[in-house]
Computed example of a mutant assay.
Amino acid sequence: MDFVKVCPVTALPAEGAFKVRVEGRAVAVVRSRGQVYALDDRCSHAEVSLSEGEVYDGTIECWLHGSCFDLRNGEPTNPPATRPIDTYRVRVEDGDVYIAAGEAKP
């Protein structure tokens, strides 16, 4: 499995998201409760950037209509979204964040 270096951990807010591009895909790299996650940066309901939304309680909220997605598995936790978003395996090594680029998990 190929991991791609996407950003230093210091680029991430203490509790929030940072948008990166990985092999042509927009990915939200999120830090929450000391963990780092990676998800598609597109709400499955309105197709707007999730990295611009709020991160809280292990979720990321779409800023447009308020849908939230579980950071661990991309599942929507409230409407209007009903479809999950893809997630990616993450590795933090030597202060940098790496994402398994070719392995999205629906």
Rank of each mutant, 00 (worst) to 15 (best):
S51M: 11
V4Y: 00
K5H: 04
D94M: 04
L64N: 12
S44Q: 08
G102Y: 12
E47H: 15
E103H: 12
S67E: 07
C62S: 07
E61Y: 01
A11V: 00
R25N: 14
C62R: 08
A38C: 12
R33G: 15
Q35H: 14
A81I: 09
T82D: 10
T10H: 02
E103Y: 06
V6P: 11
I60G: 04
A28M: 07
V36A: 00
V92C: 14
Y56E: 15
R42A: 02
V48D: 11
F18N: 07
A104Y: 02
L71P: 01
D2Y: 03
S49K: 12
V22F: 11
V20W: 02
S51H: 14
V20D: 00
G74R: 05
H65E: 07
A81H: 03
L39Y: 08
V36K: 07
A104V: 02
P80R: 06
A38E: 04
R72L: 13
R25V: 12
R72K: 15
R91L: 12
D2A: 08
D94E: 15
E54L: 07
D86S: 09
E61A: 11
I60L: 13
G34I: 08
V20K: 11
Q35E: 15
R33C: 12
L39N: 07
D2L: 07
G16W: 13
R83I: 01
A14I: 05
G53V: 03
V20E: 09
A81L: 01
A11C: 13
L39I: 15
E47Q: 11
L71F: 08
A17R: 10
V22S: 05
Y98G: 01
L50C: 05
A46N: 14
G66P: 07
D41W: 12
G16R: 08
K105G: 08
L64K: 15
T10K: 10
V29I: 15
G16Q: 11
E93M: 03
